[in-house]
């Protein structure tokens, strides 16, 4: 049995090394003092300082942030009321099945198909209004669409887990509908809403495919910028940018984990 434990440990540690080797390499070469090649020429932070002088990168960072914040705010609102609407009313079984199916569509469909559908749909909308030229607005709409489904799924599972007892008790004590919503349901729901919003935000930052299909020349985001750059040439500046994105991801993941753990355990 000891032998098996040893094999399992070795396999597990090599797997983690396999996951992290590329990421560590990116961070390592982001502080390498040479423009070309992968030979160590000493430590430097030049590539990081140069990032903040690069207009294109700053613009891409701004686009990424605007896209993530706007789409998260809208989708959190839409997803939350959708979840309440689905869980707290006596809908017939058939209707529930259909609603449930629609909600699971973005989870089950490969994102490239959703992206293709968006391209075609915006193509039609464009003939009605020039507002729908490829660009930030289209990206925001596309992101809101898949985020809303994810937020609704998270919030709904929270709704199911808190149950209806407290709300029923509030009703028995003559709470009105608005009072009930603001003073009972929403406060109880807050952890679910925050978890859903954090998920939506991370999904938006993480997305490449849907942004790639809906972006215009003026709405390049960081993942799109990195993709275009590495197809031409891999530079230490891109490593520096990727390392910063990686660090932001780590902070987001750790705060998300802490948050969900705190509320799920209690």
């Amino acid at each position: 049995m000891k032998k098996i434990t040893l094999i399992v440990n070795i396999a597990a540690i090599s797997t983690m090394a396999f996951l992290y080797l590329p990421l560590v390499a990116v961070a390592f070469f982001s502080v390498n003092n040479t423009k070309y090649g992968l030979i160590w020429k000493g430590f430097t932070l030049d590539w990081y300082t140069k990032l903040f002088q690069n207009e294109l990168i700053l613009h891409a960072a701004w686009n990424t942030l605007v896209l993530a914040v706007v789409s998260t705010v809208v989708s959190t609102f839409l997803g939350t009321i959708l979840a309440i609407g689905m869980d707290r009313f006596p809908w017939p079984k058939k209707m529930n099945t259909v609603l449930d199916m629609i909600l699971h569509l973005p989870v089950i469909i490969p994102d490239i198909i959703f992206a293709a559908a968006m391209v075609v749909a915006f193509g039609f909308l464009r003939s009605a209004s020039t507002l729908f030229e490829p660009g930030l607005l289209n990206m925001i709409i596309a992101h809101i669409t898949f985020q809303t489904a994810f937020v609704a799924l998270v919030v709904r599972s929270r709704l199911v887990s808190i149950g209806k007892d407290v709300e029923e008790a509030a009703r028995d004590l003559y709470a009105g509908t608005t009072y009930l919503l603001w003073k009972v349901t929403l406060p109880l729901l807050t952890p679910g809403i925050v978890a859903g919003a954090m998920l939506a935000f991370t999904l938006s930052l993480d997305d490449f495919v849907i942004s790639f299909f809906t972006a215009g020349p003026d709405s390049v985001t960081l993942p799109l910028y990195i993709f275009a750059a590495v197809r031409r040439m891999v530079t230490p500046q891109i490593h520096a940018l990727s390392t910063i994105v990686l660090l932001i991801t780590i902070v987001l993941v750790i705060s998300m984990e802490r948050f969900t753990r705190k509320f799920n355990v209690k």
Partner: peptide
């Protein structure tokens, strides 16, 4: 959760 473009390149 790390961006797939970064993890690929």
């Amino acid at each position: 959760w790390t961006n797939m473009v970064i993890r690929t390149y």
